[in-house]
Write a protein that binds this DNA or RNA. Structure first.
Lengths: 226, 226
DNA sequence: ACCTGAACACCGTTCAAGT
DNA sequence: ACCTGAACACCGTTCAAGT
């Protein structure tokens, strides 16, 4: 809520001129605090103690800003992911690292979904692909194996992001949100929705991270030739 | 571009008062023609020869409108999907029906992604789940099997939607868009991106629909116990 | 070279006023 | 009961003008 005085919320280091990196970091912080809708050129420029127009000197547009923010986080995630295990383990760990990043930054899954063929995705494909090769997946199956894994990872990320937005908008924490959904499921017509109703108990107890890992394992099992 | 005269673009049947169903159909038509960004309360009300406020008498807000539009299409897709084959075939056909719906309405994948726990999704889960049961998947694996399939389907839909938005925004058709991406991939550093580069040729030739079906098959293989 | 901030062309949504 | 359309509180982006 700082106006434009001599100090504002965060870094307060404007002894130098604005930099692209500085803007990206502020954008990530803002996204983490207030979600996708919270990132505004006005809010961002206020935090940087400048005007909205200034940002456009360093960043082409909002899309560019989102891609840069994704790139920053995905790059870090991939760089830090371990490569010490078997290819299967490495893929599992890379997936979990992606999951953790999307969990810590709930806007990330949705943003990756909307920035299809851009550099963040290429990093992930490359990493996954090299492990598939090491697994001995034949060349003819590289494409389908990589894209199935990718689409699954992005699907989970996107859905987690949507759930997060929903919970935030309704001021719910995870437990109360899941309770509300489970209750709604149990009120469905028993003849029409037997399967969904039978899942309500699991919904309450499930662990997103474990389920994600189990899904990856299941796909890897489908990929391996035996 | 009709102003507010005695006729406008489409239906021209306003002998009766506005109905919720009418609004939803107009919204779907508008979304099909001009994408997510094309659906505006102003554009929609113009097409319905009324004012933006009128829509709010029948629809709670834009989110409600999007969910209703999804519900309409998903309901139809599921109702029409065949159930004559083996469970595996039925899941494959349901998946393909979903793919075709998301392909014909490129905004659908993205909208489903953003409306997580709402009725359109429940329809899909229920249908998939009943087939999993029929496949003999043990109860303990219902949750993970259903959610893996769901996340994959949504992931593909969301990514196709994003690709469509990208192509539309740049005025590209599918072939030229793929060519541009393949060219970009081939210009990547050979040491850093060997896998992505090796995929460039496949990118040009690939068939989204076949790949989708192959991904479903791969996951089903991972699900089945043997 | 870089920043300022008013201005433009939009949004979704509300609400008094009409019929 | 249902519609009208101006008004409100926002957006992303541009651009003359400043330093």
């Amino acid at each position: 809520m700082a106006k434009k005085g001599s100090e504002s919320g965060k870094g307060q280091r404007r002894e130098q001129s604005l930099s692209r990196e500085q803007i990206i970091q502020a954008a990530i912080a803002l996204l983490d605090e207030s979600g996708e809708e919270g990132l505004t050129f006005r809010a961002l420029s206020e935090r940087l103690a400048t005007g909205p127009g200034a940002i456009y000197w360093h960043i082409a547009n909002k899309n560019d800003l989102m891609t840069a923010a994704c790139d920053e986080l995905i790059g870090k995630t991939i760089r830090e992911a371990s490569l010490d295990g078997t290819p299967q383990e490495n893929i599992r760990l890379l997936g979990l690292a992606m999951f953790d990043a999307m969990d810590a930054h709930p806007w990330l899954g949705s943003a990756l979904m909307h920035a299809p063929q851009q550099s963040p995705m290429l990093h992930i494909v490359e990493r996954v692909g090299q492990q598939l090769k090491a697994m001995g997946v034949p060349k003819t199956k590289h494409w389908i194996s990589a894209s199935t894994l990718l689409n699954y990872i992005l699907g989970v990320g996107g859905r987690n992001a949507a759930n997060g937005v929903y919970a935030r908008a309704n001021g719910l924490n995870r437990t109360t949100a899941l309770d509300a959904i489970a209750t709604a499921w149990l009120q469905l017509d028993a003849g029409e929705y037997p399967f969904v109703r039978s899942l309500a108990a699991q919904l309450r107890m499930h662990d997103d991270r474990k389920d994600f890992a189990a899904g990856i394992a299941l796909i890897l099992k489908g990929i391996s030739p035996n």
